[in-house]
Computed example of a mutant assay.
Amino acid sequence: MFARSLQQSQRLVLAPLLVGLIALGGVTPVAAKRSAGEPAVAIDPVRLGEQQTQLYRVGALITASRGPCADILAIVTLPLDCPWQSVRVVNEDFSPEVADVAYRDLPGGGVRQMMVSIPRLPAGVEARALVTCEVTIHLVNPPEEAAAALLSIPRRPPTALKRFVGPSPMIEARNSRLRRLAESVLADAESVGKEPDDWGRVEALYEHVLSTIDYAEGPDTSALTTLDDGIADCHGRSALFVGLCRAIGVPARLVWVHDHCYPEFWLERATGGDEFGGEWFPAESAGTPAFGGMPIARTVLQRGDSFRVPERPRERLRYASDYLTGRPLPGGGKPRVKYVREIVEE
């Protein structure tokens, strides 16, 4: 049985559900190292600003309210380590019904998940699997003008980033309308004064989205729907900006944070000689504009907008949502779940 501390997980004895997942290469024990799935280029330390720390609790409360059930597998998204955010587990709260816990990263990176196995849950009993993380977040400053001028749109994106230049759920990157709009915006930018550098070209796309798409709370919309409606929330604005970036070959994706999402884009920079590296740059999609930096400390949950989850093989997901499976025992029903995702006030 899993020891109650994740730090003492040297001898995990995994329940059948998790054993099967490991056999398929879909899950790694808690102590295993993660793979980022993309070029490992650290953010320029000069661009890291003020540091803030939050306690963030995630998990699931699972109840056999309809009668006894078994073979429960709960999947919960955890805060994500990234160049400007570090995550440390500081407290675990697992009820006795929880047999095993393991972590995994989805292929390609961008999502960290906790896998919770409950072999049997008696009628009326609530199982608890909660993890509190200490999340240290740096504000991110945009690059200096001289440094930004050296960045360029990659002629050939690294293999691991090619999925961020094509279409994904709700981002119709290959649609001709987006391509024509992006070209029109860049042509307008070049007609007023000197021709912009690649940083300026991406910034022109960003400014066009913010100036032409009104902000309003509402349902998530795709890039094309946002373009048609002329109004959207943070998701719609982000999707349109990402779609325009991809239409001209700039790798871009969504970043999902607590109660919000925003876009980020990738530009290439020379690292010496004939070698090139690159970096992701965030942009704010609501409130005060911020291009190339992030002035607000938010807990990052996922980076990306096209995920494959082993338990849902036929679906391509823009967000790897929390997930629960379980089977009713005779006289019982399927379990009910309440997911927990909250900032903990100290």
Rank of each mutant, 00 (worst) to 15 (best):
R4P: 06
S5L: 10
Q7K: 13
Q10L: 15
L12H: 12
L12F: 09
L12N: 14
L14R: 12
L18M: 14
P29Y: 00
A32L: 00
K33T: 08
S35E: 08
P39Y: 01
A40I: 10
V46A: 14
V46T: 07
R47W: 13
R47H: 07
L55R: 14
Y56R: 04
A60K: 05
A64Y: 12
P68S: 13
P68H: 09
A70L: 03
D71N: 15
I72L: 15
T77W: 00
S86G: 06
V90R: 07
N91F: 03
V101Y: 08
R104S: 15
G110N: 02
R112W: 03
M114Q: 12
M114S: 06
M115T: 02
V116Y: 06
V116S: 02
P119H: 10
R128W: 12
L130I: 08
L130N: 01
E134M: 02
E134H: 00
L139H: 10
P143A: 12
P143Q: 11
E145I: 07
L150Y: 02
L150W: 01
L150E: 15
L150G: 06
R155C: 05
P158H: 14
P158F: 04
A160D: 15
V165Q: 02
P167G: 13
M170Q: 09
E172R: 04
L178T: 04
R180L: 14
L186Q: 13
D188S: 15
D188F: 04
A189F: 13
G193F: 14
D197T: 11
L205C: 11
H208K: 06
V209M: 02
S211W: 00
T212Q: 11
T212W: 01
I213T: 09
E217Q: 10
G218W: 01
P219F: 02
D228W: 01
D229H: 10
D229G: 01
D229V: 00
C234E: 02
R237H: 03
S238R: 02
S238M: 06
L244F: 04
C245G: 04
C245P: 05
C245I: 04
R246M: 04
V250H: 01
D259H: 09
L267D: 09
L267G: 05
E268M: 11
E268W: 00
R269A: 14
F276A: 11
F276W: 11
A286N: 09
G292M: 03
T299L: 12
V309H: 15
Y319L: 15
A320C: 14
L324F: 15
G326K: 04
P330V: 05
E342G: 00
I343P: 01
E345C: 02
E346T: 10
